[in-house]
Amino acid sequence: MSAMSMPAWGIWLMALGLGIFIVMIILSLKKHRGVHRSLFAWPYSLWMIVFTVVPLFLIAYYAFTDKAGSFTLDNFKNFWDSNYEMKKQLIDMGFDVSGMELSDRGTVNVDTLVYSLWMAFKCTVICLAIGYPAALFMSDRNFKLGPTLIVLFIIPMWMNFLLRTIAWMTLLEDNGIINTLLESLGFGKLKLMYNSNAVLLGMVYNYLPFMVFPVYNSISKQDIKLSEAAMDLGADEIKTFTRVTFPLSIPGIVSGITMVFMPSVTTFFIPRVLGGGNTEMFGDLIERTFLTADNWNVGSALSLIMMVLILFSISLLRRVDPQGEGGSLL
């Protein structure tokens, strides 16, 4: 990490902003004998504009311009053919690329995106398969340990996910804790790390709580009278679940899927730590394009493509839960 300290004027500027905000509240209190509620939205709106809206425009700007700042679609061509920029430059430098090996259409970017979507899909399905029963179980009023389990789910989240992922490395390494244990019990060693299954494991581990909590919420806030009524009217446990509990929990599922799928597609760092850098996901690709290749234009185009894709998948999900009861993010 480059540890450039924040410039002193930045801190003063923040203090100034806070000061102005407090003064405005005090003034409005005096004038109206009550706070203007809209005032409280100011800091957040300001935050959103500076750190979300402006960067979005910057990304769009970089994606449609070249290094010199003039309009171009090359960055998107480079997504489709990852060798595009290289070929263009080699031709500029006077090389004949027609006969060169590896100069056909480069599929790196498209392949990585497809791979990331596939991994995110698998991760979401596994999280749902594990998370839904767990949430159902924990929200059962007769199950006294439910709240305790929820706390146990939350506790690991107090720690940064990078550290938790690095901790998995100690478990999965060839000479790690699990393999040492297996060997001492007389079993052979397993190849647990440096492959895409390890990456999937890391993703499921990190994103599982995002599936469990929304589902848990949507089930535990259901009125118990509904399922009791179903039982009174002659439905058995299975029918009560399929006709009452499950349909009512769909908003929770939709929200859970959104919350797991989105960070899964954009996953980075986990493939590097648990996958040994052998498989790259779209998040890694974007990071490498920005930082190592220092190509903000292509990096922005890749980011934009990913954002559009995520927006598209969320809008699909919204059809399932039109009221947005599960608190989906759009």
């Binding site: 920029e85 590896l102 480069g106 990585t112 498989t279 790259e280 490498r288 290749a293 190509n295």
Partner: peptide, 18 residues
Amino acid sequence: NDFLPTYNTLWAQVKNAK
């Protein structure tokens, strides 16, 4: 410097070979 895009493109192919 003028070969860096080429290096980066080729390296991406290595990193994503399966």
